[in-house]
Design a protein around this nucleic acid. Structure first.
Lengths: 351, 351
DNA sequence: GCCCCGCATGTTTACGTAAACATGTGCTGT
DNA sequence: ACAGCACATGTTTACGTAAACATGCGGGGC
C-alpha cells in the first residue's frame, strides 16, 4: 500500500480533504455524532463533544459545503450580475449587498459582463443557472435582457436594480425622478430662469428617468426646455458638455446626471473663466465622497446606495424563504439634496 | 399519494429541481447517458443525443453544481476577501479579477470585512474555509492577519494583494516604491528643492512603501526631508493636510499618496489662493479616471489595477492546477507617471 | 457460420453530509 | 423491582453527478 498522503511538494497536498468520517474515526465515534457536534445540535454529552472537537482541530476539519448544499438543496449564496464595477454607484451597491448578505450568512458570487451584448448576458444567466446560487441580483439596464431572448432559469429568484422591469421582476431602485426633481427645483428656487441638463447614456433607465423628471419640472413651471446635452457618465463627456454650455450666454444653471460629469463641467467652466456658482450653478447626482471636495464643493443629489443594496438582499432572502412568494413591484429608496457651494442665485443680468 | 409538485403559490415552486434522473426518464434512457450528453462525451448516437437534448430543454434541466463539486472535489470558484470596495483601486482590482476568472470558467465569491479586526478577518477566513472555494485572494493589509492568530485553512491556496507577506504567500502588487520614486523624482527634476508628502494610513503597506520611497529619494538627492502629513486616503484628510501645507511658505511641491487626497489638496490650495501649479505642484497616485478632470488636471502615478487582478487570478489558478506548486514570492506590476497640469517649476523666489 | 471485438447504453458505486430511524443504556416512578 | 422512558449514540439512506464496470447487440474476419 502506498501512502498517498505524503508528497514531495512542500504544502502540496492531495485533495484528501478531511471528512466527517475521518474525524469520527479519530474520535472513536460515528460520523453522525460528528455531524451533531459540527452543527451544534444538543444531545451530545460533554466528554464526547470534547473528543470530537479535539479530533476536528487535530485534523483541521472543515465541513464540505458542496455536500451540504447537495443535501439541503440550497447554497446560501446570492449571485450578482453586473455590467461594471467601475461606477461608484455600482461598487457601493455591491459592497452593501455583500455586507448585508454576509450578515445573513449568505455569500455573494459576482458575474461581471464585459460588453453587455445579448450573448454575454445570456451566457451570464446560463452560468448563474449552473452556479450554486439561490437568488440573483441584476444590476443592469434590464432592457438589454429583452425577455423574449433571454430566459431566466426557472426557480431562480431575481431582484433587479436600476430598471423599469417592475412588472416582471422585483425591482429595487433609487427614486431617480424625485432626486432629479429636487435638483431642478432647487435651481429654479434660486431664481434661475431655466436649467440646462447633461444626460446619462440613453441606454440607462436611471439616466432616462432623471432626464424625464428634469423636463417635467421645467414644463410644469412653464419654463423653456433647453436641448439636453448627451453624456456617458464620464468626467470627460461632462467636460465636453461644459465647453459647449460655456458658449451659451444665457446658461446660468446646469443639472448633470451624475457627479463625474459635473466634475467635467466644473473644469470646463473654470477653463473658460466662468465662476461657479457666481456665473453659473451646477448640481450633480450621486453624492460621491469626493463631491464635497470638488472646486467648489458640489451641490448634488444624495443616493443611498447602501440602502439599495440592503433592500436587494432583503428582498432576495424573502423570495428564497417564501419560495418566490413576493410579487413583482418597485421599491424606491428616497434621495436627498445636499446643498454645498456650486449653486447660487443667477448673476444680476439674468434676473 | 399527494402530488407535491403542485402548489398554490403563483410561481412558488418547491425545490423540485430537475435532475438527470428526470431527464433520463422522459428521454427513456439511463441517467448515465444524460450525463454523457450533458458533458459532451462521445459514445452517444445521434438519435439518442437528440432525445436527451429535447428532454433537457423541455424540463429546463440545469446541472446541479453542488453535486458536481462534491463529485469532483473542487468548486471552480475563487474567493476574494477584502476590506472595502469603496476605494477605486480595490473595486477595479476586483472587477479585473472577476472578469479574468469568468474567462477561465471560475466564479468569484466576495467576502467583505466591515471592520478589519482580527476577529472579523478570522471569521472571514473561517467562512471561506467552509465556503466552496478553491483559492482565496486577499486584498488587504496582511499584517492585520498576524499569522500567529489567524490560521489559513490548510489546502486553500492564497494570493495576497497589497502586502509584504511575500515570504509566506504568493503576493501580487503594484510596484509602489518605483511609482513613488517616479513621482518625487519628477518634482525634483522640475527644480523643486524638496517635496512634501501626505501619507496614507499607517496600517497600509502600500502607503508605507510609498512613504519610504519618497523619503529615500529625498535622502539620496541630499534634500531636506519635511515631516510627512498623515492622511487616511480620503479627500477630506487631503483637504486638512492642504490647509496645513498652505501655511508653509517654503512648500512648493507635494506628493500625495493617492488621488483623492490630492483632490483635497487642490481644493485647500484653491481656497487659500495658491495657484496650482504656478505656486505649488501636486502629484497624486492611482490615476483614477476623474484625475484628468480635476482643476487642474492631476499629474499622477498610474496603477494598472486590471493587470494586478489578472495576475492574481493567474497565480491562483496556477496554484490550483499544480496543487500549490508555486512558491511564495512577490510579483510586481510596474507603474507609469502620467504628467498633466498640476506640476511645474517652482516660483522664482524659491529657485 | 461462428467467434470475438467494438460500440452504445445500462448498472453500481462513491463523493460528504444530515435527516430519519434504530439501538442500547441507565434512571425514575410506582 | 420492573416497566417504561429519556437520552446518548449508531445505522441507513438520499441528495445529483459521473467514473468504473457491466451488458448486450451487430458486424467483420477466418
Amino acid at each position: 500500500m502506498v501512502e498517498r498522503g505524503s508528497t514531495g511538494v512542500p504544502g502540496g497536498r492531495r485533495k484528501q480533504r478531511v471528512s466527517m468520517a475521518d474525524v469520527a474515526k479519530l474520535a472513536g465515534v460515528s460520523s453522525q455524532t460528528v455531524s451533531r457536534v459540527s452543527n451544534g445540535y444538543p444531545g451530545v454529552i460533554g466528554a464526547t463533544r470534547e473528543q470530537v472537537l479535539t479530533a476536528m482541530r487535530d485534523l483541521g476539519y472543515r465541513p464540505n459545503s458542496a455536500a451540504r448544499a447537495l443535501r439541503y438543496g440550497q447554497f446560501n449564496t446570492i449571485g450578482v450580475i453586473l455590467f461594471s464595477l467601475s461606477s461608484t454607484g455600482n461598487s457601493r451597491t455591491v459592497e452593501a449587498i455583500a455586507t448585508r448578505a454576509a450578515a445573513e450568512g449568505y455569500a455573494i458570487t459576482l458575474i461581471p459582463i464585459d460588453v453587455p451584448t445579448q450573448d454575454n448576458v445570456l451566457g451570464a444567466f446560463t452560468r448563474m443557472g449552473e452556479l450554486a446560487v439561490d437568488a440573483v441580483i441584476v444590476i443592469m439596464e434590464i432592457h438589454l435582457l429583452d425577455t423574449g431572448t433571454v430566459q431566466l432559469p426557472p426557480g431562480v429568484h431575481v431582484v433587479v436594480v436600476d430598471s423599469d422591469a417592475g412588472d416582471r421582476y422585483s425591482v429595487v431602485d433609487t427614486d431617480q425622478a424625485d432626486g432629479a426633481r429636487k435638483a431642478v427645483s432647487h435651481l429654479l428656487d434660486l431664481g434661475h430662469r431655466t436649467v440646462w441638463h447633461v444626460t446619462g447614456p440613453e441606454t440607462s433607465f436611471a439616466g432616462q428617468r432623471r432626464t424625464q423628471a428634469w423636463r417635467r419640472v421645467l414644463e410644469e413651471a412653464g419654463r423653456p426646455v433647453p436641448p439636453p446635452l448627451h453624456g456617458d457618465w464620464s468626467a470627460e463627456s461632462g467636460y465636453a458638455a461644459g465647453l459647449a454650455l460655456a458658449a451659451q450666454p444665457d446658461c446660468t444653471a446646469v443639472f448633470a446626471s451624475n457627479d463625474q460629469m459635473a466634475l467635467g463641467l466644473l473644469r470646463a467652466f473654470h477653463e473658460r473663466g466662468l465662476r461657479v456658482p457666481a456665473d453659473i450653478s451646477v448640481v450633480g447626482f450621486d453624492d460621491i465622497p469626493d463631491a464635497a471636495f470638488f472646486v467648489p464643493p458640489l451641490t448634488t443629489v444624495h443616493q443611498d446606495f447602501a440602502e439599495v443594496g440592503r433592500r436587494c438582499v432583503q428582498d432576495a432572502l424573502h423570495q428564497i424563504r417564501t419560495h418566490g412568494g413576493s410579487q413583482p413591484g418597485t421599491d424606491l429608496v428616497p434621495t436627498s439634496l445636499v446643498v454645498r457651494h456650486s449653486t447660487a442665485a443667477p448673476p444680476d443680468r439674468h434676473r
